[in-house]
Amino acid sequence: MRVAMPIVSDFELLEMTATLDILRRASINVDTISLENTQVVYASNKVGVIVDKKIEDINLKDYDSIILTGGKGTIKYFEYKDLLSNIVEFNKDKKLVSAICQAPTILANLGILKEKLATVFPNFNKELIENNVIIDKVGVVKDSNIITATSVNYSIEFGLEIVEYLLGIEKRKEIEKQIIRY
């Protein structure tokens, strides 16, 4: 099981790191990937993160799932046509596609959320509605092979939902116990 987590500058640090932490606790092989082909990518709060891989060094088709984080840099995902076409293919192949905060707008604009249940940071509800997405005003939503989350506040829950999808409810419960969730 290999999961791709592509990031661009001005991403939301906590969405990335909390989700990554939960998945790695579950022993899921996650690669953080710089779309900008730099070894360090800076979050919106100017904290630099050393990535595992650069996009030029990998083939996204080798992955089983893809996760998009939100933040001010979300719009930059549209600059990476190969990423976008791979997201469409992942969805077509029923591979897990996940997005948090503003990032569900990427999925909506690609048409893969059409008539599906999803959530997004409230400032972007209109964009989802314009793309015929059914908005659920909760923290985390799973519809078929797509998981979306509202905001940084739901990063841990987002990660746990991904763990459950990929490895089952028992693994999710095991990870919840590690982080002392009641």
Rank of each mutant, 00 (worst) to 15 (best):
D82T: 14
I100S: 03
N132Q: 11
N59F: 15
S98L: 06
K76F: 12
F90V: 11
G71C: 09
N132S: 15
K92I: 02
E164K: 11
S9A: 15
C101F: 04
I147R: 03
T17N: 10
A99D: 05
V120Q: 00
E157V: 11
K173L: 10
C101M: 01
E157W: 08
P6N: 12
V163K: 00
G159R: 03
N37Q: 05
L167F: 00
V97Q: 11
K72E: 15
K126R: 12
V51R: 08
G159W: 02
I134Q: 10
I147T: 08
A43E: 00
I147A: 02
K76R: 15
K173W: 03
R25N: 09
S155C: 13
I7D: 07
E157Y: 07
V88F: 14
S65H: 08
K114W: 03
D57W: 04
V141C: 05
Y77Q: 10
L13T: 13
G139F: 06
I175N: 01
S9D: 15
L96W: 04
Q102E: 07
Q39H: 08
E176R: 06
P122Q: 10
Y80R: 02
K46H: 14
D93M: 12
K54Y: 03
K94F: 07
V41N: 02
N153C: 13
E176P: 09
T105N: 03
G48C: 07
V88C: 08
I162P: 08
V141E: 02
G168T: 09
S44I: 03
A118S: 14
V120F: 07
V30G: 02
Y182P: 14
T32D: 00
T119F: 01
A4L: 11
L13Y: 13
N45C: 05
F90D: 09
Q178V: 06
T74P: 00
S155M: 11
A118W: 07
E89W: 14
T148A: 09
N86V: 05
M1L: 11
A118K: 11
E174R: 04
G159N: 00
A108L: 06
T19G: 11
